[in-house]
């Protein structure tokens, strides 16, 4: 069954056409139960807005979505009891202790007190539970948010940029917790602008840019999309010039290893014939498996402005 399914989900902020922002533009994707699904896109691409609609704090302008197959206000309200989520930054009462904050969340979720201790243990915050939230480091805040989402033992966990602003150590801690949860069979939907993070953590991914889903599916499929080849020849410059003129090549990129070209067809014989006709003889030709980062550059057509955020 699908944990999440969206159909042409759309959000436009503001009603005046001149000033309004189309933050999410007819996006459709589905998350199966048990998947660790990455929602990848640069800052401002519409990730938070999409999650806000899923968790019910933002009203969609158009389109629809289902949680565990349920839709409509009543169905969604019921389905959300099976969801634990955080949106953007960890949102807690700064003057309350970590434990008291979880008490509030537990009361809202209708969960008993014993769960609070368990969840604090899971994220390693038990020894700081009595301290006020505002004294926590960012990593501790993020972990408290994770603990809060876990209180009702949800089947679907939705995390908005859980690694945001953390140092490598903090990111690793969050990643470890996510792995524990995934091993317990939870469905995890996490947004990120960090490619490496998604590549390491997720089984599935949707790439969003300017409110539109560019591509989505299993990470392996998204990475395998299009047939890329790695080429080497003595004269790299001539090789590059020729490949850029080759009609079947949708993109050509220089790497340290050689030239990576994405081809419309997998017809390698034609490539060698074409290059030989131009007087270029290949020393190396092999299928190339790009990283998610390279796919991202491809699908976003090398948008430099968004890349600086993506790789940072």
């Amino acid at each position: 069954m699908h944990a999440i399914q969206t159909l042409d989900l759309t959000k436009r902020y503001g009603s005046r056409p001149a000033k309004s922002v189309l933050a999410v533009d007819r996006i459709s994707f589905a998350v199966e139960q048990g998947q660790v699904f990455g929602f990848l896109g640069p800052n401002g691409s519409g990730k938070t807005t999409t999650i806000g609609m899923l968790v019910g704090t933002i009203k969609p302008t158009d389109g629809s979505f289902k949680l565990f197959g349920a839709s409509g206000p009543k169905g969604l309200f019921g389905a959300r009891a099976r969801v634990g989520a955080t949106l953007e930054t960890p949102n807690f009462y700064p003057y309350m202790s970590g434990r008291d904050n979880l008490r509030v969340a537990a009361a809202v979720k209708g969960v008993g007190q014993p769960r609070i201790g368990e969840c604090l243990d899971l994220v390693g915050l038990s020894n700081r539970a009595k301290h006020r939230f505002k004294t926590y480091s960012l990593g501790m805040k993020q972990r408290l948010a994770l603990a809060a989402t876990m209180l009702n033992d949800p089947e679907l966990i939705v995390l908005d940029e859980p690694a945001n602003g953390l140092d490598p150590q903090g990111i690793r801690e969050i990643r470890e917790i996510i792995h524990i949860l995934a091993d317990r069979g939870k469905t995890i939907f996490l947004s990120s602008h960090l490619l490496a993070e998604v590549e390491r953590t997720c089984s599935h991914v949707a790439i969003i840019r300017k409110g539109r889903i560019v591509t989505w599916g299993a990470v392996a499929d998204v990475v395998g999309e299009g047939s890329a080849v790695l080429l080497r020849a003595d004269d790299t410059e001539a090789l590059a010039d020729s490949m850029e003129a080759y009609p079947d090549a949708t993109s050509v990129r220089r790497t340290d290893d050689g030239l990576v070209a994405t081809l419309d067809s997998g017809d390698l014989a034609s490539v060698t014939r074409y290059l030989a006709g131009n007087g270029i003889y290949l020393s190396h030709l092999a299928p190339y498996r790009p990283s998610l980062e390279e796919v991202f550059i491809d699908v976003t057509q090398g948008a430099v402005d968004s890349m600086t955020e993506i790789v940072s």
Partner: peptide, 14 residues
């Protein structure tokens, strides 16, 4: 301003 209203709603309070 603390966005706790938002979190209360996410946690299941309408």
């Amino acid at each position: 301003s603390w966005r706790t209203a938002r979190q209360n709603v996410i946690d299941g309070l309408s």
